[in-house]
């Protein structure tokens, strides 16, 4: 019965063969994932449950259970405050990035001359954004809305505001361009999904008497819903991983501080990671299509 089997499988079943070669190609990644991600992640978690001291020969672990977490959330005067600021800043930035990149993508999707020139401008920040560069630009006041922050009226206006409102507004004014600078990749992602919408749908709608405004809400926006979720997630992750992020800087500083240490900073890293996942989950819930939410 052997002739029934196609020659190219050389005696092994199709299933086994696919498994063998599939894992053959992915093999390197799986090893890497275990060695460079899972093991360090578990180790960091173990560190977070211990008081870690670095000695000449290695590291000493003194189990303290959840004390590091309790300290970060209850005793530390800065950490919770920084986490709240991070969450607010992220929740302020994400809608701005999403709306801005959607508008720019729709403008760039029109037909006009010098389109390539404008596309080049809007993507430029992706190439040059690094922690130290942003830090220098912010320090010299180059990232605020030109001419706005130093106006007396604005300063007065800010002073009148309650604290919980003042911080996000101040952040918005001083870092407005910075927030826009994080939109480069998202603009391109929107642009490519706009180009995939079938033009004839718009034509049919306009023949049926739909205005451009109606077409936007009824055709464009629904077609972009998946892309919006991708973009929101991308924005949250890049903002959270950015090396100038205050929480990251604080955790980094505490790693080498005398009263901090590796155990404490590991605990904070996990709390931060948890908050990041929470923000991602909230975004998914808010942005997933309504039909699915009601089910």
């Amino acid at each position: 019965m052997t002739e029934r089997k196609p020659f190219r499988f050389r005696g092994i079943g199709l299933r086994t063969r696919e498994n063998l070669y599939g894992y053959g190609f992915v093999f390197l990644w799986i090893i890497g994932f275990a060695v460079f991600t899972v093991v360090p992640l578990v180790q960091t978690f173990l560190f977070s449950l211990n008081q870690v001291t670095v000695t000449a020969t290695g590291i000493d672990l003194l189990p303290v259970q959840w004390a590091n977490y309790a300290r970060a959330l209850v005793t530390d005067p800065n950490f919770v405050q920084l986490l709240i600021e991070y969450a607010i800043e992220t929740l302020v930035s994400v809608p701005i990035v999403i709306i801005f990149s959607m508008i720019i993508a729709m403008l760039l999707n029109l037909k006009f001359k010098f389109k390539g020139f404008f596309r080049t401008i809007f993507f430029l920040p992706v190439v040059i954004t690094s922690g130290p560069v942003i830090q220098e630009l912010t320090a010299q006041g180059a990232t605020s809305v030109p001419g706005v922050t130093n106006t007396a009226a604005i300063t007065e206006f800010l002073a009148q505001m309650p604290g919980y409102l003042r911080n996000p507004v101040e952040y918005l004014l001083t870092s407005f361009i910075l927030i826009l600078w994080f939109s480069g990749v998202q603009i391109l992602i929107y642009l490519s999904s706009l180009q995939k919408i079938d033009k004839s749908v718009y034509e049919a709608a306009s023949i049926d008497g739909a205005s451009a405004w109606e077409s936007f809400w009824k055709i464009t926006l629904p077609s972009l819903s998946t892309t919006t979720i991708i973009n929101a997630a991308y924005t949250i992750i890049t903002l959270s991983h950015f090396s100038e992020n205050k929480v990251i800087k604080y955790i980094y500083g505490q790693t080498y501080a005398v009263q901090g240490g590796i155990g404490y900073s590991s605990a904070m890293s996990f709390l931060y990671f948890f908050l990041l996942l929470l923000l991602l989950a909230v975004t998914f819930l808010v942005l997933s299509p309504r039909r699915e939410r009601r089910r």
Partner: peptide, 24 residues
């Protein structure tokens, strides 16, 4: 290739993008 556990590998690849550097 259609190998067993491909979806899990996919999910883990996406996870590596989310995990912050300071956790590892």
């Amino acid at each position: 290739y259609r190998f067993t556990g491909k979806n899990i590998v996919f999910a883990l690849i996406l996870a590596t993008f989310i995990i912050p550097a300071q956790n590892t």
